[in-house]
Amino acid sequence: MSHLVVVMGVSGSGKSTVGGLLAERLAVPYAEADDFHPPANIAKMSAGHPLDDADRAPWLDAIAAWITERGGKGGVISCSALKRRYRDRLRAAAPDLFFIHLDGPEELIAARLAARMEHFMPAGLLRSQLEALEPLEPDEAGAVIPIEGGPAQIAEQALAALPD
Rank of each mutant, 00 (worst) to 15 (best):
A111K: 15
D103Q: 14
D96V: 00
A115T: 10
M117W: 11
P50Q: 07
G124R: 12
G72P: 08
N41Q: 11
P39G: 11
A110Q: 13
R87A: 02
P38V: 03
M117F: 13
D52A: 08
K73T: 07
F98I: 05
Y30C: 10
P122E: 06
S78D: 05
D55C: 09
A64M: 02
D88H: 02
V76F: 06
K73D: 08
E118D: 12
L82F: 01
L82V: 02
E107D: 13
I67C: 05
L97A: 00
I100Y: 10
R85P: 04
A47R: 12
G48D: 04
L60G: 03
S78C: 10
E106W: 09
G74W: 09
D96S: 15
W59Y: 03
K73M: 12
K73R: 14
A115W: 04
A54D: 15
C79M: 14
H49N: 15
S80W: 06
P39W: 08
I109Q: 00
I42R: 14
L26W: 00
W66H: 11
A33V: 02
G48K: 09
E118R: 11
G71E: 13
D96M: 11
L108F: 08
Y86A: 09
E118C: 13
G75R: 01
R116D: 04
G48N: 10
M117P: 14
P50E: 07
S78K: 01
I42H: 11
G124E: 01
A57T: 15
A93P: 07
P38F: 06
A40M: 11
A43T: 12
G71P: 07
A92G: 12
G104R: 12
L82W: 06
F36P: 04
A65P: 04
G71W: 07
A92R: 14
G72Q: 02
R70K: 14
L26A: 02
E106F: 09
G71F: 06
A62K: 00
A110F: 07
S46E: 15
Y30M: 06
A57N: 11
L26C: 00
L125M: 10
S78G: 14
D35E: 13
T68F: 09
A62W: 06
A65M: 09
L113G: 04
P105T: 05
P38L: 13
H49Y: 10
Y30A: 01
F120N: 06
D88M: 10
A111H: 14
C79I: 02
R89K: 12
R56E: 05
A123K: 15
V28C: 09
M117S: 10
S46L: 13
P38R: 13
L60P: 01
P38T: 03
R116G: 00
T68N: 14
A65K: 10
E32W: 04
A115C: 07
R91C: 00
A54N: 15
